[in-house]
């Protein structure tokens, strides 16, 4: 527990952020710990996620097992730490895929002429009219359950919203004075699109996407919970939650700690993403006036 304190000190030394926005600093610290756990889980625990001790099943939290053990005698803390990688990858992967596909579709719709616009946007309308989780379950039923397939399934329902956003941004920016100025300057069309339209259409999406990593993470956990995503014995938080459900009345810790992990991760991502958004908007602020 010395690590978060020293990180906090570092933050305070760099700026007065802690005093002004303590929530953001705590969220940033929590998030960096989770990311660290995803990259080097060995830093936080000596155990291994599949290591079972048949003699110590369903042990309550103690000094040797801070989060207790599950029905197979595996250390819940170790599994939660190792689960960070699964959950973060699922959230990041789904959003990254959705951003890529959504941006491409949005750009084609915004710049590619009326026919392309009509086709893409009607497809987007159809996809967005279906309930999210239902669409994901449909995809997973067709493609078969699994961690990777659940990433595709989530991306498929996030991407259309991104496509819409990018399309609108593209159309606004295409008519903006700085794009006209760039054209009047004598730049090639390709450069105007790549250097001015695409990056400026992308910035608001990036901010939205940061926050949506949390949502995608919950979706991935939900799919695992339903048995459609990552399968046991993988230390995935949703799958652990599902497994812990059966023992909830006798061993609450098997479900509560993976659940808390999901909650804190999503909360941290949302707070940090929101701060990022405000900062970017603050930077854009003075443009509106003179």
């Amino acid at each position: 527990m010395t690590q978060p304190t020293s990180l906090l000190r570092h933050q305070v030394a760099r700026s007065a952020l802690l005093r002004q926005r303590p929530g953001q600093v705590i969220a940033a610290v929590v998030l960096s710990m989770i990311v660290l756990a995803a990259i080097v889980p060995g830093l936080f625990t000596d155990g291994l996620p599949y290591e079972a001790d048949p003699l110590a099943t369903l042990q309550p939290p103690s000094l040797t097992h801070p989060f207790g053990t599950d029905a197979n005698g595996r250390d819940v803390f170790t599994r939660v730490v190792y689960g960070a990688r699964h959950s973060l990858l699922a959230g990041l992967g789904a959003v990254a895929l959705a951003v890529t596909v959504g941006t491409l579709l949005g750009l084609i719709a915004g710049l590619g002429g009326r026919i392309a616009d009509e086709i893409i946007m009607r497809l987007v309308d159809v996809t967005m009219s279906l309930p999210n989780l239902l669409l994901a379950m449909l995809v997973l039923t067709l493609a078969g359950p699994g961690a990777l397939n659940s990433i595709y399934a989530i991306a498929i329902y996030i991407a259309p919203g991104y496509a819409r956003l990018v399309r609108v941004q593209t159309m606004v920016i295409r008519r903006s004075e700085y794009v006209q100025a760039a054209t009047a300057l004598g730049l090639r069309r390709a450069r105007v699109v790549l250097a001015h339209i695409v990056p400026n259409a992308f910035v608001p999406l990036l901010v939205l996407a940061t926050i949506e990593v949390g949502t995608a993470l919950v979706a991935a956990a939900s799919l695992s919970f339903l048995g459609l995503g990552a399968r046991p014995p993988a230390p995935e938080w949703g799958a652990m939650l599902a497994a812990g459900r059966d023992y909830f009345s006798v061993a609450w810790w098997t479900a509560v700690f993976p659940g808390l992990a999901i909650t804190f991760t999503v909360l941290a991502i949302t707070v940090v993403g929101g701060a990022l958004q405000r900062r970017l908007e603050g930077l854009d602020g003075p443009e509106g006036g003179n």
């Binding site: 004075e177 700085y178 100025a181 001015h196 400026n200 910035v203 003179n290």
Partner: peptide, 13 residues
């Protein structure tokens, strides 16, 4: 060309 509102004629990034 030189515009009336120079700021909006520059890419904000």
């Amino acid at each position: 060309v030189v515009h009336q509102d120079p700021l909006s004629s520059f890419d904000p990034r």
